[in-house]
């Protein structure tokens, strides 16, 4: 089985992991309850989409 010949240095490891970032999701205000929500997706707080009740509200 192929195995690494050399130990990976801390520097290399940390340089690689410095590119591992999270991205901020795009959010819009719900027209019904003004909570931030994902665009084109039913609001999880009030459960409406396009002012139509789609799912049960979480609160």
């Amino acid at each position: 089985m192929a195995v690494p010949k050399r130990k990976k240095s801390r520097s290399n490891t940390r340089h690689r992991r410095s590119q591992w970032k999270t991205a901020v999701p795009t959010l819009v205000a719900c027209p019904q309850c003004r909570e931030p929500k994902l665009p084109h997706i039913a609001c999880s707080a009030c459960g409406t989409y396009d002012r139509r009740q789609v799912i049960a509200p979480s609160a």
Binding site: P31, Q32, Q53
Partner: peptide, 19 residues
Amino acid sequence: EAAPEVAPEVTEDVAEEAA
């Protein structure tokens, strides 16, 4: 559809009735 947009602070019950 235009009516609820005038008043954004409508309660949920009113919105359900509108639907």
